[in-house]
Design a protein around this nucleic acid. Structure first.
Length: 225
DNA sequence: GATTGATCATGT
DNA sequence: ACATGATCAATC
C-alpha cells in the first residue's frame, strides 16, 4: 500500500475502513489476528496503519510524514465514548526546562491527528469488533489553551525536579503517567538547576474526557439519551 | 465504574 | 535503551 498523496486520499481510505470488523481488517492487510489480544496491545493501531498506507511504525516521525499527520486509534464503547486514555509522547527529561509550548512534542504531535475509533466492548469478541468513522482533527483554540495550561503546569514541575510529585491525578485534559517496560525501569535526567535524578520513565496522555469531546465536537451536547 | 500505575510486543 | 503501537489490572 502506497502512502496517501494528500489528506483527502487519507480520509477517503479511512472512511472505507469504517464498518469493517477486525477480522475483515486482518484479511485486508494479510495479517493474522493475534491469538491472545491481551498480549498484542498495539495490534489494532499497527493494523490500521498498514491498511491506510502509513510508513514505518517504529520511527520517530509522524505516521504520514509527507502530510504531517499522526494516526491514533481510539477504543470506544457502544455509545462511542473512549474507554482509555491516549498516549501522546514520552516526557522528554533532558530538554524540558527551556521549552515553549508551541515547540513541545505534545503540541507538535497533536497538531494534526487522524482519529480512528474502534469498538472495544467487553461482550464483543476481538475479531467481531468494528472500525468506526474517522475524524481528521486539529485542536481548536480552546482545546489548545486547555492542553497548554496542563502542559505548562506539568512540565514546570518536572523542570524544577519535582517529577516524583507528578502523578496521574494532575491535569484536566493532559496527564503524566508511567510509560515503561515495568515499574523497575529508571531513566536519568537533570532538572533546570543541574541536579541529577533517576526516575521511572513517564509519558503524556490525553484523558478520555478530552478525546470524547473532540470526537463529537464541542458544539454538541451528548448525554446518551 | 472510573482512574492510575503497571505492563505487553516489536523494531531500531 | 528507547522509540513505536497501546491496553491491562489493581486500586480508588
Amino acid at each position: 500500500m502506497s502512502p496517501p498523496r494528500d489528506e483527502a486520499e487519507l480520509l477517503t481510505r479511512a472512511r472505507q475502513l469504517a464498518g469493517l470488523t477486525l477480522h475483515e481488517l486482518s484479511v485486508r492487510i494479510s495479517q493474522p489476528l493475534p491469538p491472545d489480544p491481551r498480549r498484542a496491545k498495539g495490534w489494532i493501531g499497527i493494523a490500521v496503519e498498514k491498511a491506510l498506507g502509513a510508513q514505518g511504525a517504529s520511527r520517530a516521525v509522524p505516521d504520514f510524514p509527507d502530510l504531517g499527520v499522526e494516526l491514533k486509534t481510539l477504543p470506544v464503547d457502544r455509545r462511542g465514548r473512549p474507554r482509555e486514555s491516549t498516549f501522546v509522547c514520552t516526557v522528554d527529561l533532558s530538554e524540558i526546562g527551556d521549552m515553549e509550548w508551541h515547540e513541545s512534542r505534545v503540541c507538535r504531535k497533536l497538531s494534526r491527528v487522524l482519529w480512528v475509533p474502534v469498538e472495544s466492548e467487553l461482550g464483543v469478541p476481538f475479531p467481531a469488533r468494528r472500525v468506526g468513522q474517522p475524524l481528521l482533527w486539529s485542536p481548536s483554540h480552546e482545546e489548545q489553551d486547555e492542553l497548554r495550561f496542563d502542559w505548562e503546569e506539568l512540565s514546570g514541575m518536572i523542570a524544577r525536579g519535582e517529577l516524583d510529585r507528578v502523578t496521574g491525578h494532575l491535569g484536566k485534559s493532559l496527564q503524566v503517567r508511567p510509560k515503561a517496560a515495568n515499574s523497575r525501569a529508571r531513566r536519568r535526567y537533570h532538572d533546570d538547576t543541574g541536579v541529577a535524578h533517576r526516575t521511572l520513565p513517564r509519558g503524556f496522555y490525553l484523558r478520555p474526557s478530552f478525546t470524547e469531546r473532540l470526537l463529537t465536537g464541542t458544539f454538541f451536547v451528548t448525554d446518551g439519551v
